[in-house]
Nucleic acid binder design. Sequence first.
DNA 1: CGCGGAATCCACCGATCGGCTGATCCGGAT
DNA 2: ATCCGGATCAGCCGATCGGTGGATTCCGCG
Lengths: 207, 207
Amino acid sequence: MIRLLVADDHPIVRDGLCAMFAAAPGFEVVGEAADGAEAVRLAVGLRPDVILLDLRMPELDGLGAITELARLGVPSRILVLTTYDTDSHVLPAIEAGATGYLLKDSPREELLRGARAAARGESVLSPSVAARLLTRVRTPPPPLSPRELEVLELIAAGNSNRETAARLFITEATVKSHLLNIYAKLGVNDRAAAVAEAFNRGLLVPR
Amino acid sequence: MIRLLVADDHPIVRDGLCAMFAAAPGFEVVGEAADGAEAVRLAVGLRPDVILLDLRMPELDGLGAITELARLGVPSRILVLTTYDTDSHVLPAIEAGATGYLLKDSPREELLRGARAAARGESVLSPSVAARLLTRVRTPPPPLSPRELEVLELIAAGNSNRETAARLFITEATVKSHLLNIYAKLGVNDRAAAVAEAFNRGLLVPR
DNA sequence: CGCGGAATCCACCGATCGGCTGATCCGGAT
DNA sequence: ATCCGGATCAGCCGATCGGTGGATTCCGCG
């Protein structure tokens, strides 16, 4: 019997998961959490075999929860189950210690298989997630430094190089040099494309 | 007894909704659809009181389904139930004939209330959706023309004005004049901010 | 049949940006 | 102790962009 903890802030999704796994043989849902903090709290007490974890949650997000669980030494396998397969989410989650990463629009059968595999400690990835990982491995990801991201955010907000410089208390020259680095890392040639690419990679998020 | 049709491509969400409404008094789930086309097909036959409709679906998306249902004269009330409250989705859905627009992270009680209200033909809006609508009413929405959007997409892809002009078989001057219109409509002053704002408003979507 | 909006085009100018080269400083990794 | 990458700054030039002020055509709406 695989003991499950379901963590998702959407009541609907929690109900759906619980119903699905309750109906499947070999599973037992031992707890539900509506946010990351609650998930960690329950996991510590319940020590479930597998934690189904949404990444987008209030209080403590999925990534934070994974990190926290690892820090606390909770031995549960973590199966990330989310709507998004954006680069920016997948890799950090896996690096932080998630055992698998499935998309919510996966068919039931895949979810059940994924949970069983996760319980055995095997890695499970949705096809689209796997594809993304592969392309990332092929093309090593040049991450933006915090400072570069800060510059890019101000640029996206419509600031000129001069204005951006003023806001960051640095020189226009520095802003330009950050921008050149950003262009190189994102593989673009101008600020507009950099902003677009940043949105595509999930570096910038819609407000 | 309110007869429901649940349309969502995520099995989990469908299960969650069905379970929730099956457990609530006064509701009966008469059908489930995994895509927009199926939703329309079932709605025509079943004539449910309320259709719970996700916007993001394969085959025929939610908006298309709403339009189609209206065209066919299906009298069911449509309650849009989605994860996103982006401007670009809310208004078209409502214009197309949706009775209400709820977010999936709404509490159970709100979903039940919403469905009952929709069955009575009342409009239901999630608070965040309502807020967005109000700000839109206050600030009349200047939509981008198809041509302007085309220009903006090319700009976001990193094309210069000249390159954009070449691709569209128009002059650089025309591109610039489109851009000026775009800036005015989006309330920005340069291409980078225009791209960012377009992502924020859902005019441009991550690939 | 005008009116307005969308799409198209033109010219000109100052401001800004992108591209290049090179330099200093510092802290963490080796 | 050394090396490297991040962050900082500098100057220069040509290309591009944003702003202004028109102008024309076409189409739908009233």
